[in-house]
Amino acid sequence: MTQEQIKSAIIEQILEIAPDIDEADIIPDKNIQRSLEIDSFDFLKILMNLSEILGVEVPESDYAKVDTVDHMCAYFMEHR
């Protein structure tokens, strides 16, 4: 998968888990949880879905590295 494809997979999963979010409100360099009011349950679900799509499970100790869409994308590029 290219970086663009990973990025759109991330955005797709955010919208899947929190369907009332407007895609235009997803700003790639903003904290996902805080800017979109996504709680820890939804965040875990997004990571769960992405682990199935991309085959990468993010350990809890790496959560700080996946706080924004951009960071998450870079993380998956590095670990796939």
């Binding site: 769960m48 499970e57 350990p59 809890e60």
Partner: peptide, 17 residues
């Protein structure tokens, strides 16, 4: 909790809540 979750897959993780 961190130590417990480190031994588990993503689907079995427990959240602080």
């Amino acid at each position: 909790l961190e130590a417990l979750n480190a031994t588990r897959g993503i689907k079995e993780r427990i959240l602080p809540a």
